[in-house]
């Protein structure tokens, strides 16, 4: 099973980015063999609108079945849910900390969007 984390960096020690739609990268962690890959989320930047929805599509393409981020807006929430991806929000500072929380079962599945979109 794969989990996508939002981050501005390139490794497990990188900060967890609190934004979903505007996150620069996804760190996609594979729980089965404990490896990860970095997926660039830059394709959003020239879209006129809908960063959260595009991010959801990008996560879906990685094959991840869960995403861990700081906040999730309503549009991204609906898109991720439609794609069958579980959403966890956390205030963990780094990807590694968020991963540890996930593995310890300390993350709670998000049942609804917790922020408005940054720009519609």
């Amino acid at each position: 099973m794969k989990i996508a984390f939002t981050t501005s960096g390139n490794g497990l020690d990188a900060p967890l980015d609190s934004r979903f739609g505007r996150a620069p990268n996804f760190l996609v962690y594979d729980l089965n063999n404990e490896t990860f890959e970095i997926v660039d989320n830059q394709q959003n930047l020239n879209a006129a609108q809908g960063a959260g929805i595009q991010s959801a599509q990008a996560v879906a393409r990685t094959g991840a079945s869960a995403v861990v981020t700081g906040h999730c807006g309503p549009k991204a929430f609906r898109a991720l849910t439609a794609a069958g991806i579980t959403i966890y929000t956390t205030e963990a500072a780094t990807v590694a900390a968020a991963l540890a929380d996930y593995q310890a079962g300390a993350l709670v599945e998000t049942a609804a969007a917790d922020v408005e979109g940054h720009w519609a």
Binding site: A48, W119, A120
Partner: peptide
């Protein structure tokens, strides 16, 4: 031009 919040961001 369209002033989406994008330039602001």
């Amino acid at each position: 031009a369209e002033n989406s919040g994008k330039l602001v961001a």
